[in-house]
């Protein structure tokens, strides 16, 4: 009777760390899924953004005949950003991928900024209903990307806090939970919107 009790107590004590590890593992999975889901929100908006840009250029082409270079630069930036987005699939949170995506996204933003600044001098284009709608959609996806980025970065911070804090830090590597990277806008020209004066 007594020995049975002792065995039970010993087993219980041995089980405690096992339960702690299980709990830690599960919480890491939960936090990782949360930031992955947050990234999916950004991804949806990026995809929409990259789908809209060819339409925009197509609409503008017949009006902005003298701005071939700018239009091509926009398309170029859009294409490389779209492929950066493609290669980011399944690798969300990895530092290199996030950096590539951020810089490609910056290219697109500055290209679009230049495009809209130039389009101011084409009044016919400015009054084109299709163009106005595309501009509204692009403005909206841009701010959706910005808000989704905030929540993604918050989720990444929560995950990293967990991964770095004791005792999770002892296990995170062994279980394959590297730190995640936030999605930062690095270049200055997106932080300060382009000022246009006439």
């Amino acid at each position: 009777m007594n020995t049975l009790l002792i065995i039970l107590v010993v087993v219980a004590i041995l089980l405690i760390p096992v339960f702690i590890v299980i709990g830690l593992y599960n919480s890491l999975v939960k936090l990782r899924n949360r930031y992955k889901n947050a990234f999916a929100q950004i991804d949806v908006q990026l995809k929409r953004r990259y789908d809209l840009i060819p339409n925009l250029v197509e609409t503008a082409k017949s009006y902005m005949t003298h701005e071939r270079e700018t239009l091509e630069a926009v398309i170029q930036a859009r294409n490389s950003a779209a492929s950066a987005r493609e290669s980011a699939q399944g690798h969300e949170g990895e530092a290199e991928v996030m950096l590539a995506l951020a810089s490609a996204e910056n290219q697109v933003s500055s290209g679009l900024g230049r495009f809209f600044a130039l389009s101011e001098s084409y009044p016919e284009l400015r009054s084109n209903e299709n163009m106005l709608q595309l501009q509204e959609e692009l403005t909206s996806t841009e701010s959706k990307v910005a808000f989704a980025r905030q929540s993604y970065n918050d989720a990444v911070m929560n995950f990293n806090n967990r991964v770095e804090s004791f005792p999770a830090n002892l296990l995170a590597n062994a279980f394959g939970f590297p730190q995640a990277s936030s999605f930062e806008v690095s270049s200055d020209d997106e932080r300060d919107p382009v000022k246009v004066s006439f």
């Binding site: 209903e129 709608q133 909206s140 959706k144």
Partner: peptide, 21 residues
């Protein structure tokens, strides 16, 4: 909706939905 103002309103609502969760 294709109306310009309605479109803008719906977009802004979606943006805020993302921002506030």
């Amino acid at each position: 909706s294709r109306d310009r103002h309605e479109r803008r309103l719906l977009n802004v609502v979606e943006e805020m939905s993302i921002a506030s969760g």
